[in-house]
Lab assay of single mutants.
Amino acid sequence: GCWSIEHVEQYLGTDELPKNDLITYLQKNADAAFLRHWKLTGTNKSIRKNRNCSQLIAAYKDFCEHGT
């Protein structure tokens, strides 16, 4: 299931919640338009490089609020 937004804000980028895991989750569960909008298409590695934690948190919040 979903992590809470508080959990993501607190732990994203740590061993508790690697950016990797959040990106994988969104790529698996969000639709193509969402991924394009948040620039989460492409390889996990390129996304990790190009999107910082606050951008990923914003995307995750949007996903939780509007889910697909």
Rank of each mutant, 00 (worst) to 15 (best):
L26A: 01
K39P: 00
A30W: 02
L22I: 15
D21M: 15
G1D: 09
T41P: 03
R48E: 09
H66G: 15
S46C: 08
G1N: 11
L35C: 07
I23Q: 01
T24E: 13
E65L: 12
A30P: 00
K61E: 05
T43N: 14
E65H: 13
D15P: 15
R36T: 12
L12C: 06
F34S: 03
R48A: 11
R51W: 08
A32L: 11
N44Y: 11
F34G: 00
G13L: 01
T68N: 09
A33I: 13
R36Y: 08
E9H: 05
T43G: 09
H7M: 11
T43V: 07
D62C: 14
N50M: 05
T41Y: 11
K19F: 08
K19I: 07
D31G: 11
K19P: 06
Q27P: 00
D62T: 07
A32D: 14
H66V: 11
K39M: 06
I47T: 10
Y11A: 09
L56D: 00
K45A: 09
G1Y: 03
A58W: 04
R51E: 08
L26M: 12
R48I: 09
I5V: 10
T24I: 09
A58L: 12
Y25F: 14
T43M: 06
L22N: 01
E9G: 06
L40P: 00
I23V: 11
D31W: 02
H7P: 01
N20R: 15
W38F: 04
N20H: 15
S4T: 15
R36H: 07
K19W: 05
L17C: 04
V8I: 06
G1K: 15
I57N: 04
Y11F: 11
W38L: 02
G42A: 07
K19Y: 07
N20P: 05
T24F: 07
E16P: 05
K28H: 08
I47W: 04
S54P: 10
G13D: 05
N29F: 08
N52T: 11
T41G: 08
E6Q: 06
N29I: 02
K49A: 08
Y60C: 02
D15G: 13
L40M: 13
E65I: 10
N52A: 08
H66W: 12
G67E: 14
G13Y: 01
A30M: 03
L26D: 00
Q27T: 13
H7Y: 13
A33H: 13
F34K: 02
C53Y: 05
A58T: 10
K28N: 14
P18V: 06
L40D: 00
L12I: 09
E16L: 14
L56A: 01
D15W: 09
K61N: 07
S4G: 05
I5P: 07
T41N: 12
T14P: 00
I47A: 09
G42Q: 07
K61L: 03
R36A: 11
S4P: 06
S4I: 03
L56G: 00
K49E: 09
H37E: 14
N50I: 04
A58Y: 06
A59M: 08
C53S: 09
Q27G: 04
Y60S: 01
N44E: 08
K19Q: 08
T43K: 10
D15Q: 15
G13N: 04
I47L: 10
V8S: 01
Y25P: 01
R36V: 08
N20E: 07
I5H: 04
Q27L: 10
T14Q: 07
A33L: 09
E16K: 15
A32C: 10
K61S: 07
I5L: 12
S46Q: 12
H7G: 03
L22C: 04
K49S: 07
E6C: 07
L12T: 04
T41E: 13
K39E: 09
G13A: 04
D62R: 05
H37M: 11
N52C: 07
D62A: 13
G1C: 14
D31Q: 09
C53L: 08
Y25G: 01
G13E: 03
H7W: 08
L56F: 01
K28R: 12
H7R: 06
Q55W: 12
G67N: 05
K45T: 10
C64A: 12
T68P: 15
A58G: 07
A58F: 03
N20L: 15
T43S: 14
P18M: 04
C53H: 07
L56I: 07
Y11H: 13
D21Q: 15
K39Q: 10
K19S: 05
A58C: 09
G13C: 03
H37L: 12
I47P: 06
H37R: 15
T14D: 02
E9R: 11
C53W: 04
H37S: 11
Q10Y: 06
Y60H: 08
Y60D: 00
R51P: 06
Q10I: 07
H66C: 14
